[in-house]
Amino acid sequence: MSKQAEELRQALGARLRGFRKDAGFASGRALARTLNWQESKVSRLENGKQNASEADIRAWCRVTGREEHVNDLIATVRHIDELWVEWRRQIQTGAAHRQRKALPVYARTKVFRIWQPSMIWGTFQTPDYAAEVFRQAVEYYEIPNDTEAAVAKRLERQQYLYEGTRIYNVLLGEQALYSNVGGPDVMKSQLDRLMAVMALSRVSLGIIPRSAPTGLWLGHSFSMFDNTLVLVETFSAEMSVTQPREIELYAKAFSLLQQSAVYGAAARDLIVRAVRHFDTMATD
């Protein structure tokens, strides 16, 4: 969860706790009995450890005599939900819809800052590599199999590599060169594609070697679109960060990660070494 969402949830919990105490419920257990809830649920809500539903807010305000606050608190709950969107809701009809939704963001972005510690970034992917990524997603999330359409939409992003004046600052962890997505042949083709993309004038591709000293833990992947949006993907959700204070933290993280990266000939050497690794795998 983002720092902003976590802070909002904790602040909401503190307000609910205040309502409980002001209404004369000395403990969470007493309120839980009145609401016919588990005592642990009251504790989790008050301590910001669980998202409150709109029904939870209405019930809490009703029994504590604070119904005039329902609309305000529900607005807070909805804002928290917007900061943390479940993947299943995003991709419930398949992966292609999510890929199509991303295109306008890519079209209007002027400067990209991308960090991928263990995978090749989507816009740099070959069709075969992308197809394997989506195949895994279909199986993992148990969603409709629209891999072909999803790949087509992902590849549409590549047109922006050659149009306009967009700048692409992309960082990969060395592990991204070795994560075996689709087998040796798919990986060798993907690595060849990566070397071709490096030659584009508006692409700055850095690779952080596995043994490089780091000024910040490598953490999770993220994508920055100008200074207005950061997308963070996890196994269960996609988080949209739009709060300027948090965006500054991601910009700082990207700058620190850049200091550990190698570029140009050194980055190309790392890719060539990975190609040789997959050559060996293919002949074993």
Rank of each mutant, 00 (worst) to 15 (best):
F222H: 02
A96W: 08
A267T: 09
T76Y: 00
I80G: 06
R98M: 13
Q258S: 14
R33P: 01
V70F: 07
K188D: 05
E6C: 03
V181H: 04
V262Y: 08
R20W: 09
G94M: 04
M1Y: 08
T34L: 13
M195P: 00
D279L: 07
M1W: 08
I167Q: 11
A130G: 02
L12V: 08
G94P: 06
T228R: 12
A137N: 11
T93N: 13
I120M: 10
G182A: 07
I271C: 03
E82H: 10
L161F: 14
I120R: 03
T280L: 11
W217T: 14
Q243F: 11
K3G: 08
R9F: 07
T242Q: 13
R245E: 15
Q125M: 07
I247F: 02
F254R: 00
T93K: 12
A150F: 00
S2N: 07
Q175I: 12
T283M: 11
I74E: 02
G24L: 09
Y250V: 11
L31H: 06
E82Y: 09
F254Q: 04
V111T: 14
Q90C: 11
R276H: 15
W60Q: 03
S43L: 05
Q190F: 03
R9Q: 10
A96Q: 03
L191R: 05
G182P: 03
R17W: 10
H277G: 00
F19C: 04
M224H: 01
S189T: 15
I208R: 02
T242K: 10
L231Y: 11
E163H: 00
N51D: 15
F225R: 02
D192M: 06
G206Y: 02
S255M: 09
M281V: 15
V138G: 03
W37C: 00
P127D: 00
S189A: 15
T64D: 05
N51S: 13
L161N: 01
Q258V: 10
G206E: 01
A102V: 09
A261I: 12
S221Y: 06
S40Q: 12
M224F: 07
V138H: 01
A75D: 14
G164W: 02
A266T: 12
E39K: 10
W217F: 12
T242V: 15
D279G: 07
E39H: 15
L103H: 09
V272G: 05
V232H: 06
A95V: 07
F254A: 02
A131H: 06
P209N: 04
M187Q: 00
N227C: 08
G219H: 07
G65A: 10
A59R: 12
E54W: 01
L256W: 02
V272E: 15
D56M: 08
R210Q: 13
Q4I: 14
A95K: 05
S189H: 10
V230D: 01
V133I: 15
R210F: 11
H97P: 04
I91Y: 07
A196Q: 14
R157D: 01
E82P: 01
G28I: 11
P244H: 03
E82C: 07
A152Q: 11
G18H: 08
G122L: 02
R17T: 12
